[in-house]
Simulated scan of single mutants.
Amino acid sequence: MQLETYISDLLYRYECVTVPEFGAFLSQRVSATVHESTNAFYPPKKQLLFNEQIQTNDGLLAHYIADVEKIPFETATEKIAKRVKTLKSNLTQGETILLENIGELKLNNDSKIEFNPSYHLNYLTDAFGLSQYVSPSVTREVYKEEIEAIEKIIPLTITPEKRRTKLYLKYAAIALIALTVGGLVSGNYYVSDINAQNEIAQEEANTQLETQIQEATFIISNPLPAATLNVSKQSGNYHIVAGAFRVEENCNKKVAELKALGFKARKIGANKYDLHQVVYSSFSNRNEALRELRSVRQSNNKNAWLLVKTLD
């Protein structure tokens, strides 16, 4: 039985895998590192350790073998014990045991198991796909040190010609600032003058328009007789509601639809849910409102309902 294969599988998921009566393989997370001499970058990983003192059977390895090989737990435990007996015998004879992708085991001078881990596999799943990377060495230029060495040999001096050059630059800067400020002032004056002229022209245009309106007269030779319209304003606290709409445009369409059917439909405003309400009609008398509600439910809308509310 390739016991190391099962141990390797479990090391991806667990930090401790115990081999009963032999020892435990432990994993410890290690951060990414950089080798100073080779400039090699190593990703984070799980460092493997071995502790010979932990030998109690926790059932993890046996259960995993039983599930993979489809055998009873007791049979898996017996196979582990047989493999452990072979490993101990080989170690006693001075052999070095190689567990693939895990490491090497051997006995030291004190008859204790010495473990040398393998670095072929990274058991840290968070670092999956990350590999070792070697960076070329970074060379730093020492211009500053070279300049300091030159200054010691050839000191820097300021000649009168350089002083005059700085004066010229100073006067040129002052002239540039003066021109900029003057341009801003004149520009603001020009904009203000344009705005004033626009206001005067607007006032003259308004005056001419008012004069033309006052001079215009309208004469109607055959005036139409006055028409008297009797408009009845709906009132009352009893309202037969046709529906409530989130979009006011849909509310207006519903009002037009009901008016086309002969109802005195209208909008009564939005409710506390910001829905625009449409009513068939409003009544001051409760009994009249109930009779109309029954008629509306039978002829037009079975979901119509009565709202009792005082409108502003």
Rank of each mutant, 00 (worst) to 15 (best):
R294A: 10
Y123T: 01
T5R: 10
P136K: 07
W305L: 06
T125Q: 10
L26R: 01
N301G: 01
E21S: 15
T18A: 06
K106V: 00
N109K: 14
A149N: 13
K233P: 08
Q47C: 04
P223C: 05
A127S: 15
L3R: 05
S37I: 09
S27P: 04
T180W: 08
A66C: 03
S282T: 11
K302D: 09
T56K: 11
I153T: 12
I174L: 15
I147A: 13
L105C: 01
A256M: 09
L258V: 02
T139I: 12
T77V: 09
R29G: 04
T165A: 13
V241Y: 03
N271C: 07
K259F: 05
Q47A: 15
K302C: 00
R29S: 08
S31K: 10
G94H: 02
F22A: 01
I65W: 02
K166T: 13
Y238G: 02
A62C: 07
F41Q: 07
A201K: 10
L179M: 13
V191R: 12
S282E: 06
K254E: 15
S118R: 03
F25N: 04
H276T: 12
A256N: 12
L11Q: 02
L3M: 10
S89H: 14
Y42M: 09
Q28C: 08
T33I: 00
E151V: 12
E215N: 12
R13K: 14
E74M: 09
K254H: 07
E199W: 04
N51L: 09
I65P: 01
H63W: 05
L311M: 15
N271H: 07
Q132T: 13
I154K: 11
K70H: 13
N222H: 05
Y119A: 10
Y189C: 05
S232F: 12
N237P: 11
R286H: 08
G243Q: 05
E151S: 12
A226H: 09
D110K: 14
E15D: 14
I177R: 11
A260M: 08
V185G: 06
L11A: 02
L48I: 13
K170R: 13
I177P: 07
C16I: 12
N188H: 08
Y168E: 15
G59Q: 05
I80K: 03
L10Y: 03
P160S: 04
F218G: 01
K70V: 09
Q298V: 00
I158Y: 07
V68A: 10
L307R: 06
Q53W: 07
V138L: 10
D312I: 11
R291W: 00
A127W: 02
S192Y: 12
Q212S: 08
A127D: 04
S135N: 01
K166R: 15
E104F: 10
K253W: 06
R291S: 08
E161T: 07
F41R: 06
R29H: 08
E257P: 04
V138Y: 02
V134E: 06
L167P: 00
A256V: 11
A76S: 09
L275E: 07
A66R: 05
L224G: 00
R13I: 11
P160W: 02
V134C: 05
D312Y: 14
Y171L: 15
I200G: 02
N300R: 05
S192L: 13
S281Y: 05
T92W: 13
T180R: 03
G129I: 03
R83A: 15
L293W: 05
A270E: 15
Q298D: 12
Y64M: 03
G129K: 04
E114Y: 09
L26T: 02
